[in-house]
């Protein structure tokens, strides 16, 4: 299992850089990952999404779909795409220290 160093801590990731153990993630790492994903500075809008993804994953044990982010998380699909352009669910999941979303929706 590959590991990598983010913000001074070694974490477990898969081949594509997604966390395999979300417990290892810290908020400080999100800022570093956001730069890598070319999202830039994380705003309150970004954090609302990251927090929902983390909370929902913790409760359900699976990654939410974009539809669930909209309907259960109350985050408009347009906001998700505007804040994380170029692959919103994948990028936000990676920054939130979560596994790669596996759904087609």
């Amino acid at each position: 299992m590959p590991t990598r160093d983010i913000a001074g801590t070694t974490v477990d990731v898969n081949e594509e850089g997604y966390f395999t153990n979300p417990e290892q993630w810290t908020e400080a790492m999100a800022a570093v990952l956001a730069q890598e994903e070319e999202i830039g500075e994380l705003t309150d809008g970004h954090w609302k999404i990251l927090n929902f993804l983390r909370q929902d994953y913790k409760e359900k044990g699976t990654m939410p779909t974009i539809r669930r982010v909209k309907n259960a998380g109350g985050i408009p699909t347009k906001d998700l795409y505007d804040l994380f352009p170029g692959g919103p669910l994948k990028k936000s999941s990676k920054i939130a220290g979560l596994p790669k979303p596996a759904s087609c929706i």
């Binding site: 779909t65 974009i66 539809r67 909209k70 408009p76 759904s103 929706i105």
Partner: peptide, 14 residues
């Protein structure tokens, strides 16, 4: 979590 057609079109548009 596959939406009904109307909602799906709206999501794709958004």
């Amino acid at each position: 979590d596959i939406p009904p057609i109307g909602e799906f079109i709206e999501m794709i548009h958004d």
